[in-house]
């Protein structure tokens, strides 16, 4: 069990997160959803120890300090482009930055190439990261995150730059890794239908607090969507038995609800 205990973040006197807490079971995939600017990325970064925050993160009851967080948690930021001419293979190798020496062994190189092969990217290994498409880059960074073999994986909009096919491939791989290795995954997402299809649990964040939390069929309903997003939406069960969310119209209101 990975626990997030009372995480609070404030910038310039403005509260971004207010005592957010939850427990995540081993091998599960949790989707973190909510309107823009509501603190999803901030929550992921604060759990990973990348920004100052009050509160704790604990794994199996043990509170993680900063160096333990680095070993245990992998955080993949949103894709903001990469103008570097580092090769794709070098980028994946950087996933194990802490253990790299002056010489890279054949075994670690083979493992990095295998991580790329999971996304059929091994042919791109010598290409500069800045010269491949945004979608491919996103997959490379995902391969880098999985190459770290973390116990907890935090993803910030992992499918944002991907086409439909690759969205399914990526989430499928993450889901499979969770099941196979017991990795705990939490991903900030905007596509509620994808979240419903792949996540074991959906956490709604709004105004820096959790306003709904549970299995997709329990929390994905028009009332919660209206309360959180300010939209009228339909939630239907598709032919494959997966929930599908269709926004109908935006209701009157501000840009977002902040604390």
């Amino acid at each position: 069990m990975f626990e997030i205990r009372e995480i609070s973040v404030a910038f310039d006197g403005r509260t971004i997160l207010d005592r957010v807490g939850m427990g995540l079971e081993q091998g599960t995939f949790t989707a973190l959803v909510g309107p823009n600017g509501t603190g999803k990325s901030t929550l992921l970064k604060s759990i990973a120890g990348l920004i100052p925050a009050k509160g704790q993160a604990a794994l199996a009851g043990q509170v993680l300090n900063q160096s333990e967080k680095l070993k245990t948690i992998a955080y993949m930021p949103q894709d903001t482009g990469a103008q570097s001419s580092l090769t794709v293979l070098e980028v994946v190798l950087l996933g194990r930055l802490q253990s790299l020496g002056m010489r890279i062994g054949d075994d670690i190189r083979a493992q990095a190439i295998a991580a790329l092969a999971r996304f059929h990217l091994e042919e791109l290994q010598d290409r500069p990261i800045g010269a491949i498409s945004g979608g491919q880059r996103q997959l490379v960074f995902l391969a880098q995150s999985l190459f770290r073999a973390p116990k907890v994986l935090l993803l910030d909009e992992p499918t944002a730059a991907l086409d439909l096919r690759h969205q399914l491939i990526v989430l499928d791989r993450i889901r499979a890794t969770c099941c196979d290795s017991g990795m705990i995954t939490m991903a900030a997402m905007h596509d509620l239908s994808l979240a419903a299809r792949f996540a074991d649990r959906i956490v709604f964040l709004n105004g820096g607090v959790i306003c709904a939390d549970g299995a997709p069929d329990k929390v994905l309903n028009p009332e919660i969507l209206q309360q959180v997003y300010g939209v009228e939406a339909e939630v239907q069960i598709g032919q494959s038995g997966v929930l599908h969310v269709s926004p109908v119209r935006a209701l009157q209101g501000g840009w977002t609800n902040s604390v």
Binding site: P77, T80, L94
Partner: peptide, 20 residues
């Protein structure tokens, strides 16, 4: 710091996420 500097070429946030 050779590897950390290499990681910095991916940007501050990515380098930080890798433990730099």
């Amino acid at each position: 710091d050779f590897w950390k500097l290499t990681a910095l070429r991916l940007g501050d946030e990515r380098a930080a996420s890798l433990g730099v």
